[in-house]
Design a binder for these strands. Sequence first.
DNA 1: CATAGATCCTGTATGC
DNA 2: TGCATACAGGATCTAT
Length: 288
Amino acid sequence: MPELPEVETIRRGLVRRAVGRQITKVESDGSRLFRNNVFGAKTVDDFLTGGRIAAFNRRGKFMWLLLEGQSRALVIHLGMSGQIRYHTQALGEPLAIHEHLRLYLDDGGVVSFVDPRTFGHLTLSELEERGNRQIPAALHHIAADPLEVEWEPAAVIERASQSSRHIKTLLLHQELVSGIGNIYADEGLARAALPGWARGTELGQQRWQTLLEGAAAAMREAIVAGGTSFDSLYVDTEGNPGYFRNELAVYARAGQPCHSCGTPIKRMTLDGRAHFFCPVCQRFETNI
DNA sequence: CATAGATCCTGTATGC
DNA sequence: TGCATACAGGATCTAT
């Protein structure tokens, strides 16, 4: 569910509420979220308990928590239904349904990780030098996202132009470019006036550049709006929805008029996922 | 190696 | 109203 703008909104909330705080107590369950740790949730509990939070960093849809003086980080992925909430006061019952991790902070605040579908991850990983920054080793295969300093569109375009896959599927491939999910892939395609089913080899450098810039612009604007909410599944750390839904050009707008030409937006299934597009504005002509 | 497809889960919406 | 089915913002593993 959460893509780059939603993860970034949550990260900013955590930075504001939890950086500099000491973790006085940890509660967790043994859910699938901890599956990548050698001793499961126990390993994560031991790591966090007593630590002081130094930072929350992000690459694409992955976020990680750093503790002062530690060479490992807690990598957090929200999957399809993950949510992180902050509460100024202790909650009543320990661990509500679908609540898998709870951190008690030294100022009385509480950070709570909730995930009904448990497609997310909470994984400890050693930090590694990568370019100018430290990235958890577990994310070695995740490419830079378009909002990073390390972003190198030329290299991405070079690779993408050699693939026969659909361009929308390439946008969703986190080893090529990270952070883009189904919403911002469709919004980027709409901005670039391209249909998702064109092939990577067919675009050429210029249109690839326009497409990547379109997706990046949509994500930048979505961050300003606090992300995209369709229901209560996505809210920020304070429980507030994001308002980018009002600015979507195509995503989840099947049957509604295109903002630029009035034609009803269409929905199709492409490589197993929903794809929304304007059949008039988003056309592909190989001789452009 | 690159690609297509199945798979992990629960909650909600839709149709009969 | 009740029940069955489809679908959901993602990433990873497997088979070809």
